[in-house]
Design a protein around this nucleic acid. Structure first.
Length: 422
RNA sequence: GGAGAGGUGGCAGAGUUGGUUGAAUGCGGCGGUCUCGAAAACCGUUGUGCCUCUACCCGGGGCACCGAGGGUUCGAAUCCCUCCCUCUCCGCCA
């Protein structure tokens, strides 16, 4: 959520910044409604002050045994007017919310221009895709022939886009989760969390997952006000909702492994095979709560933490800075990590690291007390570190051998208890 | 799932015959006195949001907030309704 006071003060700046996203924000309408709202509030509060005074006088009169019927009558009339004004205020507020909650975060200045994916800019690349002296196969074929990925039976138990992992496959999934968490907790200074997997609508709204457009993606429980976790960003960022943190507690670094569920509405026909786009997938998330002055550097550090995972696994990847038009709703700046996948003959997103500035914190009301002064909003950041299924696929494809076996990456040998699969 | 108790300021804990109670008191925190310094003692101070005045800050005035939402009333932390949560006992289970 944007800062309404800032919006009020310099709407043109916001209009320009949001324009970089290709958005024509209805800010004129906002300014007009906002002006009207304050007018109504002022009138209502003035009448309330009057009523409060009258109530005191009625009390005093009663104690003195004086009749106050006329005062009570006048006060009653005032009450009706106040009720009407408050109703009007609430209506205007609702209209304002409808506008403000749909306004995305303005991009930071160093975010490249561009309307879509094609405007993204590579900032660095690591490793080089291995050449194969045989025809490399996609991970779903290798997985099937090694009998470690079973998509038919996954579908039998649930439906399509659900997968059954078997034997070394199940072991690899678990190994990756452990490896990620161990790296981040022991070497990168993150505290491990294991939050609830079912999430209430208030938390979903807080991080923006429940806005008009995004609501389609979530699995909702029929009998309860709960959703299946779409990304650990939601439960983890919400842990401090409505809290004021002590400045000395910042920065907070937390990491969490959590199964994630998405309906993938609108993705029909895309990535239909293999582990790339599943309804249920595992992910290790990195989340930071930081002081505003530090968030820019914290994003660089968080991105490097995610990159480190790929380096340890010796998987070639590149890092791209998303252009203004490709940024997610709440992000002011995002780096995507893309891993090399032979089956795509290209790079595929495996992590997305974003700085939200105070956009999420304002909506979630997460603040910290600076010195002895007023509470200020923290900045929040998050990134995948990493998506487990896509890492699984990348390992199978990049480490495949001509005989159909897969070499276990050095970093995973202890976790796997084997040097090769198959 | 059954029965009961309860949700008040950073914490603890008053206040429920409705009326200067934003809320006693204690602790903690901050500032000061004292001290070479510290402790103790004493004095003062100590919530958040919004509206408004002044040029932003500081400050002044106002409104709101005692789990959430609604209701009764001139007036509600105090009465009524709905929901949420916590605790205790029983049952059940991992």
């Amino acid at each position: 959520m944007l800062d309404i006071k800032q919006l009020r003060r310099r709407p043109d700046d916001f209009k320009r910044a949001l324009g970089r996203r290709g958005l024509d924000a209805p800010l004129d309408e906002f300014i007009e409604l906002d002006r009207k709202l304050r007018e109504v509030i002022a009138e209502s509060e003035e009448k309330k002050a009057w009523r409060n005074r009258a109530s005191g006088e009625i009390a005093a009169a009663r104690r003195a045994g004086i009749d106050a019927t006329d005062k009570i009558k006048a006060s009653r009339k005032l009450g009706e007017m106040i009720k009407a004004l408050d109703l009007m205020a609430r209506d205007i507020e609702k209209q304002l919310d409808d506008i403000v909650l749909e306004l995305p975060n303005p991009p930071l200045d160093d975010v490249p221009d561009g309307a879509d994916e094609s405007g993204n800019v590579q900032v660095r690349a690591w490793g080089s895709p291995a050449g194969f002296d045989f025809k490399p196969r996609p991970h779903w074929e290798i997985g099937a022939s090694l009998d470690i990925i079973d998509q038919e039976r996954g579908s039998k138990v649930a439906e399509s886009r659900f997968t059954l992992l078997k034997g070394a496959g199940a072991r690899l999934e678990r190994a990756l989760i452990n490896f990620f968490l161990n790296l981040h907790t022991t070497e990168h200074g993150y505290t491990e969390l294991f939050p609830p997997i079912l999430i209430n609508s208030e938390s979903m709204r807080g991080t923006g997952q429940l806005s008009k457009f995004a609501g389609q993606e979530m699995y909702k429980l029929r009998d309860d006000d709960l959703y299946l976790n779409p990304t650990a960003e939601v439960p983890v960022t919400n842990i401090y909702r409505d809290e004021i943190l002590a400045e000395e507690d910042l920065p907070v670094y937390v990491t969490a492994y959590l199964p994630s569920f998405r309906r993938e509405a609108g993705a029909a026909g895309r990535d239909t095979r293999g582990l790339i786009r599943q309804h249920q997938f595992n992910k290790v998330e990195l989340v930071k709560f930081v002081r505003p002055e530090t968030s820019s550097g914290e994003l660089e550090a968080l991105t490097l933490n995610a990159e480190e995972v790929l380096k340890r696994l010796e998987l070639p990847f590149r890092t791209v800075s998303l252009c203004a038009g490709d940024l997610g709703f709440a992000a002011a700046k995002t780096y995507d990590l893309e891993v090399w996948l032979p089956s795509y003959s290209g790079y595929k997103e495996i992590s997305s690291c974003s700085n939200f500035l105070d956009f999420q914190a304002r909506r979630l009301n997460i603040r910290y007390r600076s010195g002895g002064g007023k509470p200020r909003f923290v900045h929040t950041l998050n990134g995948s570190g990493l998506a487990v299924g896509r890492t699984f696929a990348a390992i199978i494809e990049n480490y495949q051998n001509e005989d159909g076996s897969v070499t276990v990456p050095e970093a995973l040998k202890d976790y796997m208890g084997m040097e090769r699969i198959g």
